[in-house]
Amino acid sequence: MSKVLTANKLIDGNSVWLNAQGEWVETIADAFIARHDEAVAALEETGEQAVSDNLVVDVAVIDVKETEQGIWPIRLRERIRSHGPSVAYGYEALVQERTQAA
């Protein structure tokens, strides 16, 4: 199964994924995909190091599917983490309410 490494950045809490250059990026589309045990072990190691370097918190290796549209996390929780809340919020939610009321 394919896996990617995710975490939240220490400084702002934003969800991030590890890319192939070893950088933490804010879109899952750019995540490095581990497809065998050794690569997964390397991800885990990188995650631990990033935690002890105080770059990120709450690291986790997560299961994903590789689709034509890109990386698709298996768990809904991770899909919501990667795409943001599934509902409009703040001012966008207001616009939606007005449209529905009209």
Binding site: N8, L10, N14, V57, D58, R77, R81
Partner: peptide
Amino acid sequence: RVNGDITEAAFKPLRLMNGLYLQLHAY
């Protein structure tokens, strides 16, 4: 914490005492 002088394990109870959680997308 930001300077790396305290670990997350030590910091977490301190931030929680001040109402700061870490959720899915952010603090």
